[in-house]
Write a protein that binds this DNA or RNA. Structure first.
Lengths: 178, 178
DNA sequence: GTCTATATCAGGATAGAC
DNA sequence: GTCTATCCTGATATAGAC
């Protein structure tokens, strides 16, 4: 692994576990076993480093989302979306943590993520799924669903038990089926 | 309002909106129109200031929780608990934001809050409520409930619409009734 | 690409006067 | 109780050499 990649990797770990603001570039350098100056050669600044981490991570997530977007059956859409946080966290626990941290901590970031519309297509897909399922108030049902999904995403950060996670998914799914 | 109270008030606002780490004591002093040194006369350090804010806030929340703990009917317990974030956010929006921020950002804090057992009695109460309702897996149902509750708590931070909040509460409640 | 050295600045915190 | 002045540290970032 080259040094730039190593910086990205270490920074992701630290940002996820300690938060972005709380992580100094000097610590990143130390753990990545590079000089602190090198960080600023490869990235414009600390925020630039964060942005590159985010881009990389989102790219890795995209296939999972595309899978959902390609699905036709509403029940399956609901299920796959519920499964999404679990799948992401299995493959990219650190990144998921970072994402949830930033989402929460930083209003601007949350808006960017919405405006950037990375998750917007998924949002529409879910809305339509609940319409197809003939819920009397599909929009509210989707809202409730995303509330639960957010809670589940947070839950997973602290609770790694795979079996239990899938039981929860089943249980939640039941509540959003007809 | 005396200066100490003003520091507490301003600090709460800033901690809630910008996060604890991101808020400098100098800014607090400026907005509270006191000298920076005064902060460290009244509080041991920045963290001491945070702790006093938390204590005050939790004291104000306690009556709401006691109300739930005194309730006998399981359905009512569920409903009141769902209503809890809404009630708190109505009266103490800043404090609620701060609480959710810290919960997320800081693992130690989250554990403290659990160990300190401020919310522990409520936890038990909910577990028993689902037992009383004869759910086949009351513990998992309670887990799912808290997941949803967390998501709802986060939702409220960004969405002030009272009517919609109550519609959501109803909708969620339905999903946890028998 | 990478390191060392260094500039600059802001944050938390203290001392001492009033 | 309150303010002013100040210290110290650590964080981001740059410069220049290899």
């Amino acid at each position: 692994m080259n040094k730039k990649e190593n910086i990205l990797k270490v920074a992701l770990e630290l940002f996820a576990s300690q938060g972005f603001d709380n992580t100094s570039t000097s610590l990143i350098a130390k753990k990545a076993e590079v000089s602190e100056g090198l960080i600023f050669r490869h990235f414009a600044n600390k925020e630039g480093l964060l942005n590159e981490i985010l881009e990389e991570g989102l790219i890795k997530i995209k296939p999972f989302i595309d899978l959902i977007l390609a699905e036709k059956h509403p029940e399956k859409i609901i299920y796959l979306t519920l499964e999404l946080p679990y799948k992401i966290i299995s493959e990219q626990k650190e990144f998921w943590k970072l994402l949830m941290n930033l989402r929460q901590q930083n209003e601007k970031f949350r808006k960017d993520l919405n405006d950037n519309s990375f998750f917007e297509p998924l949002n529409n897909k879910i809305n339509n799924a609940f319409k197809d399922l003939k819920f009397s108030k599909p929009k509210m049902e989707a809202e409730t669903f995303f509330i639960t999904l957010t809670g589940f995403g947070l839950y997973l950060i602290d609770n790694g038990d795979k079996e239990n996670a899938y039981k929860l998914i089943k249980n939640i799914q039941l509540k959003f089926s007809k």
